[in-house]
Design a protein around this nucleic acid. Structure first.
Lengths: 341, 341
DNA sequence: CATGTTGCCGTAAACGTTTACGACGCTACA
DNA sequence: TGTAGCGTCGTAAACGTTTACGGCAACATG
């Protein structure tokens, strides 16, 4: 005899009453509820999730899908660790667990997602590293699975998302460089189809326009979001006759490779080339020269994601009355020495 | 009508036969098996995991527990991403899924683990960032849950683990520095109770002894495994009268803070202080000067972990006849300029 | 006193699988 | 011909929950 049945036998009451007592239902006397809870604690009883899932059709878990080979910030740094913390702080309020689903390098994220959803492992989903026209968004809306994306896509339709302020950051970086006297400002964007690169580029373009500067397509450098990508970026910049005097990076660790390439040519960031990176992380804070970049609250972002997801789930929506969210997460510029200011 | 029942009705056979056909059992004719498989594919049928789990008592999933606030390598870099890939490559052979369980910062890992196991979310478990006398090891052996730890602990008893070659790395670092003429060699170890620090320190001590050098406890610096920790380390080293001429780091990103501290004093790693770090990662490869450190195959490690775990699970053990494993994962020294050689 | 209401509890069905068991038809062999 | 064996399949129980439903006693209300 196991599970709730044993508990019921021990207390000499029916399993239905035990279940109701444990689930906080109204039609059970305070006295028996007390006894049930004590006995459950004493015997170390915890409900079997499989039985519960089968009956209720849900799992009390939320999934967070990441791409291991996505070549975007997060693959290489502490980004997700902070976000996970924030998400869990919200989920814990509802006794929901967070499980992280790592899509293997080389596997199609949409296929992986399909497999995971078929398993009915989670009730809702957070997906990150959104691509252009991300197929997963259509899949999830079609399957009517509650979800939110960390990162916009350019998929038409109204789906919930939260995204970092890529366009704002690009705009403010241009503003800062222009007011420091720069007029030839390059930009690095990812070489794959991650959507953030396009947002970043748009912010850059519109900022140039506002300053009356012409957009020069040859100043857009598409490189992998990695240290090696930064090294390649430096090579390409240095090889140019009409060298730009400043560059904006979509990914902070590009700066490492860039610094090295500059160093090998006897040059230095901040003095010979103004550099502004995207996101502050412990590494970008300790590079020399310190990278001028943008700071955000990772746990705050995670909490916002969690709340926005729950808002789309009928069972929890009443606590989060905002409904579906499309939200840009603010970032704060933290000055370093890399932009020469 | 849903699930297997619908499939059976469609084909006008019993649900038992459908289930046997799908699960590759012998007592079903090749003809009907063919029909069932085709119909399942056509209708997009996938078995409900809750029903299956309830009946079979397992989940077909493996958990990988990480600690978000563990302040150890992995919290800050690409370490786990590579390992996840390796683990999944093995699990995929058995139609097992990997779910990552992130223990929130500040929560007791043992309590978190207890909660997760009670949910019966996974059949087996990989735990990382093992502490001294890690309580989770006793818990899991007592609960008879198959597991393996990434990292030794000093818990007595025979449990399966795989660990990086911390002692070997410390030993070889000392060897290298001694043969370059250093005799006052400092070491940085974590300030918390992560077990790897003790293994690292032991390797360092025994290597000193083999070279006939006295162990000086004041040359052991306990600092957090972070960039800031490296900065503090640099401060402490520079403040000493009898300054060591070399230092070995248990965590590669300590070098960033250390470099900065040295730079602020007009000094440089490799010239004024020999530095050897622990693990190669993209960041340590692009620091200036490049860090002399130790390289390992992350996916290879992950695959070894996956195989070692499956070897402990009765349902899969026959494919992995080695049984329980206690294994040290080899690392290769990659020379940089930071040690002045 | 008759009737309705309320509080509490037991009964049993249902969720979607897997699998032990038995049944059936056929072949093979004594 | 009788029977044993084999290949194939259907039946039904079981996994551990939740919950709709009804029942029973106690109490209130007319």
């Amino acid at each position: 005899m196991k599970g709730i049945r044993r508990l019921a036998q021990e207390l000499d009451i029916s399993i239905g009453t035990v279940s109701r007592a444990l689930n906080g239902r109204a039609d059970v006397s305070p006295d028996t509820r007390q006894r049930v809870l004590e006995a459950a604690a004493a015997m170390g009883y915890v409900p079997n999730q499989a039985g519960r899932s089968l009956r209720q059709g849900n799992t009390n878990a939320i999934g967070f899908m990441i791409e291991l080979g996505a070549d975007v910030n997060g693959g290489n740094d502490n980004f997700f660790m902070g976000v996970f913390d924030g998400v869990q702080s919200v989920l814990a309020r509802h006794h929901l667990d967070l499980v992280v689903l790592p899509c293997p390098t080389g596997e199609d994220p949409a296929v992986y997602l399909q497999r995971m959803m078929a398993r009915r492992l989670v009730d809702g989903l957070i997906i990150s590293a959104t691509h252009r026209k991300d197929k997963r968004i259509d899949m999830l809306t079609k399957m009517r699975i509650p979800f939110i994306t960390l990162g916009r896509s350019n998929t038409p339709g109204d789906y919930p998302w939260i995204d970092l302020d890529f366009d704002g950051a690009a705009r403010r970086a241009v503003d800062r460089l222009v007011s420091a006297g720069h007029s030839r400002i390059a930009i690095a964007v990812p070489s794959n189809d991650i959507n953030l690169g396009f947002v970043f580029l748009d912010g850059y373009k519109s900022a140039l326009a506002r300053h009356g500067l012409a957009f020069d397509p040859t100043l857009v450098f598409r490189v992998p979001s990695s240290e090696l990508g930064g090294y390649q970026l430096g090579h390409e910049i240095l090889a140019r006759q009409d060298r730009p005097s400043a560059v904006i990076l979509n990914y902070e660790l590009l700066a490492l490779g860039l610094y090295r390439q500059l160093g090998e040519a006897g040059l230095q960031a901040g003095r010979d080339l103004a550099v502004i990176g995207f996101r502050e992380n412990p590494v970008s804070r300790y590079m020399s020269p310190r990278l001028t970049c943008f700071r955000l609250s990772l746990t705050g972002l995670g909490a916002a994601i969690g709340e926005a997801l729950l808002a789309t789930m009928p069972a929890y929506a009443e606590a989060y009355p905002l409904g579906r969210t499309q939200r840009i997460w603010p970032m704060e510029l933290v000055p370093g020495e890399s932009d020469g200011a």
